[in-house]
Design a protein around this nucleic acid. Structure first.
Lengths: 219, 219
DNA sequence: TGTACATCAGTGAACGCGCGTTCACTGATGTAC
DNA sequence: TGTACATCAGTGAACGCGCGTTCACTGATGTAC
């Protein structure tokens, strides 16, 4: 379990145990698993105050430790954010894979499901989503991040290949997958902003995603 | 003309005069047009250091004035950024309209051109582009900003209507326009990031935009 | 044309603040014997 | 089982820094006479 401690209370995070590879010590030894606690605190702050409102000081306050404590686990602030984002990407990818469950292979419905989960993550954790694709803003530039992104895109490419009857990732498969990704990516940003979202009128997300998948996969 | 003054030199901005409604005084009276100068300095810094790297202090340094000077023209920092973003949106819209020049009405080529210009702006001024769509990050929340966005989207909707043979903006016109916008919007973010861009393989931007326009407008 | 005055854009110094990071330290724990 | 010791996660105080904003001011300009 990951515990977030404030001065007066302990709060059990509602999400299921995410960093449970190593068993956490049961007793109150120091903090239990401060690394995971700080990552969770960082995530909450990024969601609450935006990708830039986050500060190490705040995260420490939320985790209930001194401001020097994080430096036993992370080199500096950006490594802390990076760890949080990586964890978010893994969750995002896992959720997308899970969304395919029970949908017949080769159906555009599979791409509709992937797109829906992509958007859902962006709406659920907009701060993390924006950090993942922050561009040159932060020092957030890690090969591991790119690798994780490629792995996720690979899932999409596999589905596209199946849908258009290819057995491998041809340039055309890549091109179609790239079109769908661009669409869903832009859609995520727009849906996350109430003012932008309005411009689409009455939006039926499932229909929109399915319609686009069919159009891009047709021929 | 908009002058940017540093300690030792005057630099004429390469862009054509943008804030030339009021004639600038010819002589060296104070700063000429500090408001425009600060907006330009803000724009440069946002591009150079990212949407968050920007500080009032830096802008003043770049414009060659004391840190108190901006407060004669702007209420606070966010008003300064807002002014800069608004100016960027107007340019963006004007560029898009200009891109239609000479392309026959009712042709998907017109939507291809609009999309190309949209992406081009995002690549030319990624910092400003990201600020426009920053979400909840900053206090950047102004009705004028939304209105400007709607006006730009209106251009797209008009073209879509013509392409699919409607004389007014029906829900279906809006839906198709929204699909195209989402695609181009996501594409802009992806193309701006070298690492993400790679995932598309060899990208022919014109073909990609044209292909998508045809697919979304077909039927 | 010359002078007195009002205007107001820009100055320069100062403020309080929160930030990221460091440092020598402490004290709970695991372990070797 | 009991003791001495090594380990190292977390402490608390301090640092230097750049930030946004304020203040009383100054001095170049435009204008009324």
């Amino acid at each position: 379990m990951v515990w977030i401690m404030t001065k007066d209370e302990k709060i059990l995070t509602p999400e299921q145990d995410r960093a449970s590879d190593k068993p956490l010590r049961k007793s109150g030894y120091h903090h239990g698993d401060l690394r995971a606690g700080l990552i969770e605190a960082t995530r909450r702050l990024v969601e609450e105050k935006g990708p830039d409102g986050f500060s190490v000081t705040d995260a420490c306050r939320l985790a209930g430790v001194s401001t020097a404590a994080p430096y036993k686990h992370f080199k500096d602030k950006s490594e802390m954010v990076l760890a949080m984002v990586m964890e978010g990407m893994e969750r995002h990818r896992a959720d997308m894979v899970a969304s395919l469950d029970g949908i017949p292979p080769g159906s555009p419905l599979r791409l509709q499901a992937l797109g829906k989960e992509y958007v859902a993550f962006a709406l659920r954790e907009p701060g993390v989503f924006r950090l993942k694709f922050g561009g040159f803003t932060d020092g957030l530039d890690d090969p591991a991040l790119q690798a994780a992104g490629e792995r996720t895109f690979g899932i999409v490419l596999n589905e596209v290949a199946q849908c258009i009857g290819e057995t491998e990732i041809t340039p055309e498969v890549r091109r179609r997958g790239f079109m769908l990704w661009s669409f869903v990516h832009g859609l995520s940003f727009i849906m996350d902003d109430e003012r932008l979202k309005e411009m689409g009128g009455e939006i039926n997300l499932d229909f929109l995603l399915g319609d686009m998948a069919r159009r891009v996969l047709s021929d």
